[in-house]
């Protein structure tokens, strides 16, 4: 499974949606994820990809990890995976 497909699957599960209903352009609010849903999503990403995600629930937009859309999350995780293997 690609990084993108896995992240879509994780987000879909947290948002209680089918993966096919999640589009890459969707934002966090559009997905219906609240701050604790986001915290669980970040945890699932860390566990699946063995990365450490810089994320503070107090101000998600201030974190280095861009959670503004599904695509931005995928891009950020790909960056973390690349940094890990570098």
């Amino acid at each position: 499974m690609s990084v993108q497909d896995k992240i879509v699957e994780i987000i879909a599960e947290q948002a209680v949606l089918e993966p096919s209903d999640v589009s890459l352009s969707m934002g966090i609010e559009e997905l219906g994820l609240d701050s604790m849903g986001l915290v669980e999503t970040v945890f699932a990403i860390e566990e699946n990809f063995d990365v450490s995600v810089p994320f503070n629930a107090n101000d998600p937009s201030a974190s280095d990890f861009d959670v503004s859309s599904v695509q931005s999350i995928i891009t950020a995780v790909e960056g973390l995976i690349a940094a890990k293997s570098a």
Binding site: V39, V42, F43, F55, N56, A57, N58, D59, A62
Partner: peptide, 20 residues
């Protein structure tokens, strides 16, 4: 740590820059 509400920079209640 799991809750992601802790600060690593200091406790700044009511400050605009507070981060946990």
């Amino acid at each position: 740590e799991g809750l992601r509400v802790m600060s690593n920079t200091g406790c700044r209640p009511f400050c605009a820059s507070r981060d946990g």
